[in-house]
Each structure stands twice: as structure tokens, then as C-alpha cells.
Design a binder for these strands. Sequence first.
RNA 1: GUGAGUGUAGCUCAGUUGGCAGAGCAUCGGGUUGUGGCCCCGGCGGUCGAGGGUUCAAGUCCCUUCACUCACCCCA
Length: 419
Amino acid sequence: MQPRRLRGFQDIAGAQARTLAAVEDCARAIAERHNVSEIRIPALERLDLFQHSSGETSDIVEKQMYAFVDRDEAETTLALRPEGTPGVVRAYIEAGMDRSEPEQRFYYVGPMFRRERPQKGRFRQFSQFGVEIFGRADAATDAELMIMVDELRRELGLELNFEINSLGDGECRPRFRQAVLEYGRAHLGELCEDCRNRLERNPLRLLDCKIDVKLAESAPRSQDYLCEHCRAHFATVRELLADAGVAHTVNPRLVRGLDYYTRTTFEAISIAVGAQSAVAAGGRYDGLVEALGGAPVAGTGFAIGVDRLALALDAARFAAHADAAIAALGDAALRRAMSLATALRGRGLRVEVLAPGRGLKALMRRADRIGARYAVIIGDDELARGAVTLRDLAASTQTEVAERDLAATLAAARAAARA
RNA sequence: GUGAGUGUAGCUCAGUUGGCAGAGCAUCGGGUUGUGGCCCCGGCGGUCGAGGGUUCAAGUCCCUUCACUCACCCCA
């Protein structure tokens, strides 16, 4: 039996793995600069956590969850997390932070699981990097989230389009929802089947329906229903974004269906990754902490699809190159090679000691294959002189270098190459 | 869940009206006793996705099935 990976799951190695790591490292560094700290939470939770936070009628909960009954506790159904926010909110409430110290700034990174049909930029296990900020209801926090995503865009050299919208708050959002509901009822006969089915329980989804585009265009707009506070909040967010140089467009059809989503909502869209083009999305969820049993604390956050974002990057940029490949000819040379390699690694150099017992020709080919900048050759002649042959593989030149000078020589060469 | 496309060597693919299973790359070795890339020679490598049918003969035609890819759907 030939073992095969599961559908929609990936084995990732080489430059692709380094690309994902680069995205995650870059996002971490940005979060830390914004004084956001890591929270590590479980990949497995009780199913009802996701049902209560993502909504029992959402597709994610209804048909995309990896859920199963815990083997010894038949009354407990568990699920692999399909997103990060519910777990972070659960942890926040469980630690009592909503009461003791409500203002918290968290980021998380790790695998999420959804049993969807795979396609470009969509896998059943995928990595998300997310930020959740609690206890801040101000517009500056909403803007800061998008500024963080924009910093990531800049540092990775990506093109992203930001779309934003405001859904209103507890005061004005219900009026808007009611207006969309009545609009939908008035055009019931023209709606697609999906929209008709979910109209009563989730009318806002009509607005981002791709079938009923025409109807959505002339549907009520959240902008027209915002109360004074929400209008001011949204204006401030846009002002702060403009100040920070974050280009964005207002998309009145950008919505979230669930009631605890409030005010600002946004997506960052890439033109380079196929149909699954939203590489980051987020917004304000002032009702969520309370909905999960905590105190009424404001919350806002975003998540980045790491795999999706990496698709927009050229993996070759992140390929690994060894600084030195050491070819040892003979047992005595091998022992010398091992200790020299340790010294080089001590200076932070990337070093591979090549397979002993093979011909120099094969070893040189390996050195070339792994992209090594230098080959270090140690044979009987070099051993006798306490030296090594140092070959510059790009220039095809070589010199003899004393063993004790090797580390300094290579470290200097690398520093020069980086300058 | 729905639709379309594609399955032949490790990878990328060719394979004509049905007639011996192929190429390039990769890998290993040789040309060069201690020198990579370029070049030349050679070795290894196949259940043609799987099962059934038609035929003297099927990679090729038919049926079934599985997998992969992209899109729909959905989505931080």
C-alpha cells in the first residue's frame, strides 16, 4: 500500500516552506512592533464554541467543519478550528481578562481546517496569521489593523487593494438590516435560491451575492443608515488611513452576516492569486465577547491567509543557499571537516559537510546543486599543510587558506556579499 | 455539494487511421586517479491512475470508477 496524503492537505518543503515562514516571520515582527503579543491556543475545541461564534447557519459550521465525538465522552463533540478568533476570545474570557484587564492585544499563527473542495489558494489545512485587539472601541484601532496589513504588503513587496465598509452598531445596524430584509421581501421573486433561503435569518448576505448583482446594487446601503456616532467613527478610520498612506476604496456590499460584527469591516485583495483573492480580512466585532459569555468588551481583528499571500510571492526569492560545502577526502580529512564546520556555524554560516567516501567530482556537483557560494576541499595535501582549498563556485577560482583563517575569510565574504 | 479539464518514467510531457513504451530534465556512473556548471557516452527507472468491454491486436475506441487541477459555492 502506497501511503497518500489526504485531499486538500499539502506537503510543503524547500523554497515554498521558506516563503511561508518568511510571511509568518514578517507578520510576527510587525505585530511585535505594534506591541501585540503572541497567544498560543489549541487547534481542537468543543464544536459548540464555533457554533456560537461563527453562527449555526454559516457554511463553515454547517458543512465545512472537521467534527467528531470524543472517544470516551460521547456527549462531547470536538472540532478542529476553522478559524482563530473563537479560540482567542474563549481564552480571553476563560482567563478572566474581560473583567481584570480588558485591554489586550494578541496575535496568533497556525493551521486552520475546513473541509472544502480544494482549489487554487484554498486547502483543507491552511495557515492563518491573525490579530485580535480587545477593549478598544476607537477608530484608531481599526485603522491600525489595516496599517499593519499594509506594512506587511510593503515589506513583502506585494500589490493589495483594500476595501472597507461600515455596518453600523447596535443602534443603527438593526435598522439597516431591517431595510435590507424588506427590500429582499419586496423582490423575493427575483432572488436566487440561496438568498431566498437565508433572507429571513441572514438578509445582509444578499448584498455580496454574486448572482443577484443587479439587485444588490440598488439595495439599501449601510452608509445611508449609519447613526451619527458610526458615521464619525467611519470618517475617522478613513482619515487615519489616508494619513498613513493606505490606499482604499469603500465597498458598500462588503458585509458580515452575524450580529456581533459592527462598524468597520475590510478585506485586502490580491490580483495575483486566482479566484480566492481575499488574502486578509477583518473588522470590528463588539458583540462577540459578550455573545460567548464574557463582559461587554469591544473587539476588533483581522486574519491573513498565509498560503494565499505566499502565492503572490516569487518563491525563488526565498530559496536557501549554503555558504559553504565541505568536501573531505579520507577519514582524517573528515574529522577535520567536522570541526571546521562547527567553527563556521558558530559564526552563523550555513554549512554542509558533504558525504564521505565519494569522488570529488560528485561532491563538487552536490556543492553546486545546493547553491553553495564556496566549496572547501580538504585532502591529504591540505591536511599536511594545515590548510584548505577554498573554491569560489561562482567565480571558478580557488586559493589555499590556512585552517585558522577560514572562518574569518568566509564570514567577511558573506558580509561583503550582503552589503 | 455542482461543473469543466487532465491522468504515460522521480518531474515536464510526446505518442499519428488501434500495430515493438518514447523524449527532455533529474539521478547514478564514465570521459578527467583531486574539481561543479557547458559538452559527449552509458546505467537505473513503466500495473500507460484502477476495473471491465470491443478487437487478431488497446496508451489510443467504449463503459464504470478513482485521483488531481481549475472554477462555482463558501470564506479569516
